[in-house]
Design a protein around this nucleic acid. Structure first.
Lengths: 192, 192
DNA sequence: ATTATAGGTGAACGACCGTTCACCTGTCAA
DNA sequence: TTGACAGGTGAACGGTCGTTCACCTATAAT
């Protein structure tokens, strides 16, 4: 990508972070030190070709396909990576990638190591979707006999078992009550 | 939250997904079947009080604090969860939470199980920030003797070692060359 | 020396922006 | 029966929107 466009991209993202929207033509004129909106108009054309921004039916500037997303450069082992544009595997927005159902999803912080063999560690955040029906081998957030826990869901006939991903934990059969709050759709961990 | 506002929130989010921006007053009049913009104006006031949307200096509607974010309901073990509004721990936007440096970050898909004891599994995605200086015990994406790998970074004196989080793998000392492409800042895994 | 082109100015255009005003309902409490 | 009020209509306002036009440079190719 052209260097000029990359700098423009930075400025636009800074504006986005401050205002939670993209600038108008006259605001862009300020940002880029133009004194004519026509100059902006031409810049916009270039940015559109680079797929950084787009314009909606009213001409307003909206994010393009690569604006709020990160490049997915490939696979660690596979001769990785020449971050050349042509070779980049994909480009994706984390929000859209991780969340299927915004209205029915919430986050929970993990405590305990019962799912550690599934790669779910204490202090990780899991995204729970309460609108999904739990299926066998789904990881669910469940309340079993008045305790909340994260376990594999397993149904044999009419009997539901909960299984930890850690041999030290026994298989759980509800004595009195079991309710599934939702299915874990993803797990995120932040190091820095 | 009032039910009326929740439905409004859904409509606004749908508009956001379609147009990548929030509607204008007259567009909101269409969405909510009002024939006067004044009705919209009053609805906007209510939505602002609920912190779902905001208005910028020009009066344009922009996302509020809770618009694109997910509620963090708490901790799996700690008497979890009454999803009552007052008790919710936090509310956060995944993009903002996970990405510190948009310009210098990229994604890589994990292959191999050398970091599995750190909870980084094959097919997970890691977010790499190439602008950070690697420190001891950081997980880094590195090229060692012409192979790309994910390992713990370890520097003793002037000698750099790479360590896997898996006892079956030996400690790596570069024979000829070692370059660190970036530091892993987070790890995400999608189940559904 | 001439021409083409990329990039910019400045002004004008109609359309749409968010705000505000006076006014019209129902509903519900006093 | 009255009054207050939440919620809506419809119209008008000045300001800003994105677009487009004619025109002015530099720079580089012919």
């Amino acid at each position: 990508m052209e260097k000029r466009l990359e700098q423009a991209n930075k400025k636009l993202r800074r504006f986005w972070e401050q205002h939670k929207r993209l600038p108008s033509f006259s605001e862009m004129a300020e940002i880029f030190n133009y004194s004519s909106k026509n100059a902006v108009s031409k810049l916009v054309s270039r940015l559109k070709e680079a797929n950084l921004i787009d314009q909606d039916s009213k001409g307003h500037i909206i994010p393009g396909g690569t604006f709020n997303s990160l490049p997915l450069l490939g696979n660690v082992q596979a001769g990785f990576p020449t971050p050349a544009e042509e070779e980049l595997v994909d480009t994706l927005t984390l929000d859209e990638y991780l969340i299927n159902n915004h209205n029915s999803s919430f986050l929970v912080e993990v405590a305990g190591d019962s799912m550690i063999n599934a790669g779910i560690h204490p202090k990780d955040l899991v995204i729970v979707d309460r609108s999904l029906d739990p299926k066998n081998n789904d990881i669910v957030l469940a309340n079993i006999d008045d305790e909340w826990t994260l376990k594999y869901f397993n149904k044999k006939g009419n009997q539901v078992y909960l299984q930890a991903a850690n041999e030290q934990y026994p298989e759980l059969v509800p004595q009195q009550e079991l309710s599934v709050a939702g299915v874990i759709v993803s797990c995120i961990r932040k190091y820095k």
